[in-house]
Simulated scan of single mutants.
Amino acid sequence: MTIERSGLSNRMSQTVVHGDTIYLAGQVGTGSDVTAQTVDMLSEVDRLLASVGSSKSHILSATIWIADMAHVSDMNAVWDDWIDPANPPALACVEARLVAPDYLVEVMIVAAKA
């Protein structure tokens, strides 16, 4: 099987497609709070999935890292409004120090092709 990569840098690919499985690099968003960053981050997930022929309805698993669990309910409110309720993925959410202090939330997605 071929492996297709896009959004390449010297360190990583934004998307990797192997067969019918899609892997997204960790995505973060911009904004002053976890709500704004989550909205922006999920918008980028939508864009990346569409670019490789998929959508949020085909997400198999998501791992979310949040800088402070005190804000998990704000992040969950955005996630719950965004995710396809008929096709929720396997999900993990953990508290972690992210790569830069301005980042409050990050998600990594594995999806299937549509």
Rank of each mutant, 00 (worst) to 15 (best):
Q37H: 05
N76V: 02
S43H: 08
M1P: 06
V16T: 13
A50D: 12
N76M: 12
K56M: 04
S55A: 12
D33W: 05
N87P: 05
L48H: 05
W82T: 13
I66L: 15
G7Y: 01
V78Q: 08
L48V: 03
S73V: 09
S51R: 01
N87F: 10
P88K: 15
V45E: 06
V34W: 03
S43I: 03
T63H: 12
D80V: 07
T15N: 09
T30D: 11
T35W: 01
T38V: 03
I3H: 03
D74Q: 15
A77E: 10
S55I: 03
I64A: 14
T21W: 04
W82R: 13
L49G: 07
T2F: 02
V28R: 14
D84R: 06
S13T: 05
S32I: 02
D84T: 09
G29C: 09
A70C: 01
V72H: 06
A50K: 06
M41N: 04
A70Q: 11
D68L: 05
T35V: 13
D40V: 04
D33A: 03
H18N: 02
V72S: 14
D40N: 14
A70F: 03
V34E: 04
P88F: 07
A62P: 03
H71N: 15
S61F: 01
A36L: 08
S9Y: 00
D81K: 14
H58A: 15
M41H: 02
Q27S: 04
L60C: 03
L42V: 02
M69Y: 00
D68M: 09
I3P: 02
S57H: 10
I66S: 10
E4F: 01
N76G: 07
S6G: 14
G7I: 01
T21A: 05
S54G: 10
T38K: 03
M1N: 07
T35L: 04
S32A: 11
A86D: 15
D80T: 13
M12F: 01
D20P: 06
D20R: 11
S61L: 10
I59D: 10
I83D: 08
V28A: 08
T63P: 05
Q27N: 01
Q14P: 02
L24K: 04
A90I: 08
A86R: 11
G31I: 02
V34I: 09
T30Y: 05
V45F: 00
E44G: 13
W82H: 15
S73Y: 00
S55F: 01
S61C: 12
V28E: 02
P88A: 07
T30P: 01
L24F: 03
A50N: 09
P85W: 04
A36M: 07
T63D: 12
T21K: 03
L42Y: 03
S61N: 14
L48T: 01
W82Q: 12
S43C: 06
M69A: 10
A36K: 06
T15I: 08
A90H: 10
N10D: 12
L60V: 14
W79K: 05
V52N: 10
A90T: 12
T21V: 14
Q14T: 09
D33C: 13
T63C: 10
W82G: 14
D81Q: 15
Q37R: 04
P85Q: 14
S6I: 00
H71R: 10
D74Y: 00
H71W: 06
A77M: 11
